[in-house]
């Protein structure tokens, strides 16, 4: 044995474990023009958002594990809520170019997101694929316009998060964002305000890095009071490069 490397046969057939991430993005008209006439053409939130999505695709594909484990879906809301990118592996993710128009049907977007997540989990289970707790990222610069739907959806989403079915991250864009309402989306953490319109890129790099560290995190198998209070137990990189609470 002394001269040779130990090289046992390995199982090649197990699929990579997955972490599903849904991006629910506000594409209401204010993301193009919030009426303040402050924006130079190049710095409209919708443009920065699109740029940020490209940065995300690039950064996520730069990490070996993230490339194989992360799955992304993009839902937009404004004028309607719809899936623009159904779930795909990050290495196949083509960032969409989003256009801003209409109101803010955030409630409908949340419902679509919850339904997509449940469906994805079922697909994982059917395929014998391991998965980590999925993430839902919501970014909005205003306040929901479909209030009735929103109330029902938030209630359901809070319930899911309490049961550890999903981890919700809520991001408020710009000075007109309804931070109070956006903070209702998660029971574990308040909404984070994007520092400024230039911070989308930094946010998406942070997201990519955070997804990379998911496999090092732990989800507690038992409901032990002190641990439930601790939230996700994922050690995330600091947010101060792009946001503030």
């Amino acid at each position: 044995m002394s001269d040779f490397d130990f090289a046992p046969r390995l199982n090649e057939d197990n699929p990579d474990p997955r972490v599903a991430c849904i991006l629910a993005l506000d594409t209401s008209y204010s993301m193009f023009d919030d009426g303040s006439r402050r924006f130079e053409l190049a710095a409209r939130p919708i443009d920065e958002l699109n740029r940020g999505l490209r940065k995300f695709a690039e950064d996520a594909n730069g990490d070996d594990l993230t490339r194989k484990q992360a799955e992304v879906s993009v839902i937009k809301f404004g004028p309607v809520a719809e899936v623009v990118v159904p779930f795909c592996e990050v290495r196949e993710f083509t960032p969409p170019t989003l256009v801003a128009e209409g109101g803010t049907p955030l409630g409908a977007a949340l419902q679509i997101a919850m339904s997509e997540l449940e469906q994805r989990k079922q697909q994982y289970r059917a395929g014998g694929i391991e998965y980590f707790r999925p993430w839902l990222i919501v970014m909005s610069d205003g306040t929901p316009t479909d209030t009735g739907t929103f109330e029902t959806a938030v209630h359901q989403l809070n319930d899911l998060e309490r049961r550890k079915a999903v981890a919700v991250f809520s991001i408020a864009i710009g000075k007109n964002a309804d931070v109070g309402t956006l903070s209702r989306l998660s029971v574990d953490r308040p909404a984070v305000q994007l520092n400024d319109v230039k911070s989308f890129g930094d946010f998406f790099v942070w997201l990519s890095r955070s997804l990379a560290s998911v496999s090092q995190s732990d989800t507690h198998a038992e409901t032990d009071g002190q641990h439930v209070a601790q939230g996700t137990q994922v050690t995330l990189p600091p947010i101060d490069g792009w946001g503030r609470v």
Binding site: P17, E130, Y131, F132, R133, V214, S215, S217, D218, T219, H220, A221, E222, D224
Partner: peptide, 21 residues
Amino acid sequence: HADREYANEASFVTDRHWRNS
């Protein structure tokens, strides 16, 4: 392994209810 949903769910010897695990 016990049935668990997530790939990173585990029990630890420091858990209060370790005996159940």
